[in-house]
């Protein structure tokens, strides 16, 4: 029973993180690529990005709660805020660093912008995007923990704090362990995803080792 009970909370937390990640990517990829493609927009908007990026996102929690309440929307929004800035900067920088020569052969084939995006830009920025997700997701999980301590009865934050309040220390420690395992699973999943979608990186490093 306890196993199933904790499972529901783990799934709830995992879903919030994944939803937040999905929304953050939907926002960050076009914005990051826009900044990379249009230097003038980058010049105007980058200072704003740099100004807001270092702000601890937990400091924005009261604002988010004021605007969105204490339900799911606020929790997901906090995840998005943690992830989106990191992703925009990483995607923009990765796109800016794509060597111009990579585009030349496709230009000579008469490729249009959509084809350039599909065959050059998106594959090029993929490794850095996954790295940015890896870096930001730890912080996202810790912020999520905090936001789950109120306004919900599902999630690892709720589970751990509720166990603590009831002096159910065994459950509390189990919850902490489960949260760690959730973090481990997220990182491991990103590693697996990277191995699948960035095969050339693994083959390149194996090739260098055997040389």
């Amino acid at each position: 029973m306890e196993g199933m009970n904790i499972g529901i909370h783990v799934i709830a937390s995992a879903c919030r993180i994944l939803e937040g990640l999905f929304i953050a990517l939907l926002i960050a990829v076009p914005i990051g690529l826009l900044f990379a493609d249009y230097p003038k927009i980058n010049k105007i908007c980058s200072p704003l990005l740099y100004f807001t990026y270092p702000v601890p996102k937990l400091a924005l929690l009261p604002v988010v709660m004021l605007l969105l309440g204490i339900g799911e929307a606020a929790k997901i929004t906090m995840i998005v805020l943690i992830l989106v800035f990191q992703l925009i900067v990483s995607i923009r920088d990765a796109a800016l660093h794509i060597p111009r020569e990579d585009f030349h052969v496709l230009i000579s084939l008469g490729a249009n912008k959509r084809q350039m995006l599909r065959w050059i830009t998106l594959p090029s920025i993929l490794p850095e995007t996954l790295t940015a997700i890896r870096v930001a997701i730890g912080t996202a999980a810790s912020v999520l923990f905090f936001t789950e301590t109120f306004g919900t009865d599902k999630g690892m934050g709720f589970y751990i704090v509720d166990s603590w309040m009831r002096l159910a220390y065994r459950e509390m420690y189990t919850g902490i362990l489960a949260l760690s395992l959730l973090g481990f699973a997220l990182f491991f999943s990103i590693d697996i995803l990277e191995k699948k979608v960035c095969k050339w990186k693994n083959r390149e490093s194996n090739h260098k080792k055997t040389k």
């Binding site: 020569e101 052969v105 000579s108 084939l109 993929l126 960035c198």
Partner: peptide, 13 residues
Amino acid sequence: IGYIPQQFGLLDW
């Protein structure tokens, strides 16, 4: 038009 640049222009991925 077939174009072969100096560094061959192969896409790493």
